[in-house]
Design a protein around this nucleic acid. Structure first.
Length: 508
RNA sequence: GCGGGCGUAGCUCAAUGGUAGAGCGUCAGCCUUCCAAGCUGAAUGUUGAGGGUUCGAGUCCCUUCGCCCGCUCCA
């Protein structure tokens, strides 16, 4: 499937995920719950392999920097629930606790209760002009547009104002936004509170309200000072974290692609402002190659820089944002985001310094300079990565018994090898048990003596197990086994005592 | 959030308003020397859930939950 267009529907993949224990709907026996999914045994193994690979390659054995030496990255595991003021500083509360109105044309967003409307008394059919209440300039602009529309000047007594939230849908359709000349560009007021709320403690009140984190990044910024003080790190360095995040998405959709509970793998790379661009390029390159190293190599993966008009609030200046995207069956022929590498400037640390009144600057001894570091953030979706691996692996093959196999890269396959006695007698199960015990010390290996060999191979195809080692009647005498390759169904014979070496060479 | 479609066994699907089934899978036994083989048998359903119409509802109506598609949205 690698490098080709997907030729299957998402339904088929979802069906296999259920059938073979990769992913189940959450709370299924109660009818499910929108936006939540459970990982079955094989899905958990796959996700854990992806997670562990990331942690190994980014934290335990980080990449080599431009100077040829390993860069410095430390791990962190911060709490899902933090002091609510964290989310005020980060900008997540504010835009999200109040009904908001978007302008489709200018992409501006306004608090609905901050907008008022200007019209002519007794004239319901004309256009209505929105302005920011309390802002004289905005009001003057609205009045000017209104006068231009009716082609005459107006007395104050003719004017009628009301709150935007009092408008009907029909009225909103003829309303001109504060920063535009065309009517009907404003959306209806909507709650954008994408954060899940809960209450810490027994008393359920405003004072005890807390939020589940909508991103893991803030936990890293909160601990920047602690890490600098305790870990003898020097800028540039990174802090990495893997964990769950929660967003109360309006429309969860596309299997686990947009769910309300998901996992992220994030690095916040702290560096001097002057070196930010250089490190941005470095991380774009490192992260692109990493996804390729786990099997996402073909036309289905895309690396691209964001257009300026789609940048997040924290990334409008600087190097911009680089996306690593995957062509999922449901986005085809388009792409969906797997990871974003963003230059966040020093927005977050600066904001937390302001809000917390705690110094979050860094003193650079060699430069003899105190500054708030800039941040390059490679933020990857673990759930989305798992989905991309599933999509990439799914390979229909009408010529084989299972009709489909999962072509996982051997290093991240949930089952990396199977050991089968050809039949359950003549000493074959005993040899299989010995080989299985040897291999499972290092790899994820299963063994199975039941039913026909074909049926067992077929099961392994759907589970995505790359290698099956079969003990037959000759093994006892020639000390050799048959290796059956998942992708080609080809077989070869290798020495029993070379199986571990075979696995080490291909799986790692 | 809006509009449309769908929901029957683990999966894929049947069943004029009239006794809920098949294939595959799963499991057990026998057999079996390289690709879901063969034989025998078994388990599994409040037909997503809850109401209503009817002598009788998987089927018709209402509500709700979930999934898919198209808009909208995705800081």
């Amino acid at each position: 499937m690698s490098g080709t267009t997907h030729t299957y529907s998402m339904d088929e993949l979802v069906s296999l995920c259920k059938r073979r224990g990769f992913i189940y709907p959450a709370s299924e026996i109660y009818g499910g719950i929108n936006g939540f999914w459970d990982y079955g045994p094989l899905g958990t193994a796959l996700k854990n392999n992806l997670r562990d690979r990331w942690w190994r390659d980014m934290v335990k054995r980080p990449p080599l920097g431009p100077d040829g030496n390993e860069i410095s990255i430390v791990g962190l595991d911060s709490s899902i629930i933090q002091n609510p003021r964290v989310w005020e500083a980060s900008g997540h509360v504010g835009g999200f606790n109040d009904p908001m109105v978007d302008c489709r044309e200018t992409k501006s967003r306004y608090r609905a209760d901050h907008l008022a409307c200007l019209g002519i008394k007794g004239n319901a059919s004309g256009q209505i002009y929105a302005f920011v209440s309390g802002d004289d300039e905005s009001l003057a602009s609205a009045r000017k547009k209104l006068e231009k529309y009716i082609k005459r000047s107006l007395d104050d007594a003719e004017l009628d104002t009301c709150a935007l939230t009092d408008l009907s849908a029909d009225e909103l359709a003829v309303t001109v936004g504060p920063d535009t000349k065309n009517a009907g560009t404003l959306t209806e007021p909507r709650m954008f509170n994408l954060m899940f709320e809960s209450y810490a403690g027994a008393i359920k009140s405003e004072d005890s309200k807390v939020y589940l984190r909508p991103e893991t990044a803030q936990g890293i910024f909160l601990n920047f000072g602690n890490v600098v003080d305790t870990m003898r790190v020097k800028v540039p360095f990174g802090i990495a974290q893997i964990g769950k995040a929660f967003r109360n998405e309006v429309t969860p959709r596309n299997f686990i692609f947009r769910s309300r509970e998901f996992e992220q793998m994030e690095i916040e790379w702290f560096c001097h402002e002057d070196e930010a661009e250089h490190w941005f390029e470095f991380w774009c390159d490192v992260r692109s190659k990493w996804w390729q190293s786990i099997g996402l190599t073909g036309d289905n993966i895309l690396m691209r820089k964001h257009d300026d008009d789609e940048l997040a609030h924290y990334a409008r200046e600087g190097c911009g944002t680089f996306d690593i995207e995957y062509r999922f069956p449901f986005t085809h022929p388009g792409f969906g985001e797997l990871e974003g590498v963003a230059h966040r400037g020093n927005y977050d640390l600066t904001r937390h310094q302001e809000f917390s009144k705690k110094k979050l600057s860094y003193f650079d001894q060699p430069k003899n300079e105190r500054y708030i570091p800039h941040v390059i953030e490679p933020s990857a979706g673990l759930s989305r990565g798992t989905l991309a691996l599933l999509c990439e692996a799914y390979t229909p093959d009408p010529d084989r018994a299972s009709k489909v196999y999962m072509a996982f890269h051997p290093s991240i396959a949930p089952i990396q090898a199977a050991v089968f006695p050809l039949v359950g007698k003549d000493g074959m199960p005993e040899i299989a048990a010995t080989l299985w015990a040897e291999l499972r010390e290092r790899w994820d290996v299963v063994t199975d003596v039941k039913q026909s060999i074909g049926k067992r191979y077929a099961r392994m195809d759907e589970a995505g197990c790359p290698f099956c080692f079969t003990i037959d009647g000759d093994t006892a005498s020639d000390q050799a086994v048959t290796v059956r390759h998942r992708d080609t169904q080809a077989q070869e014979r290798i020495a029993l005592d070379k199986v571990s070496a075979f696995m080490a060479a291909r799986v790692g």
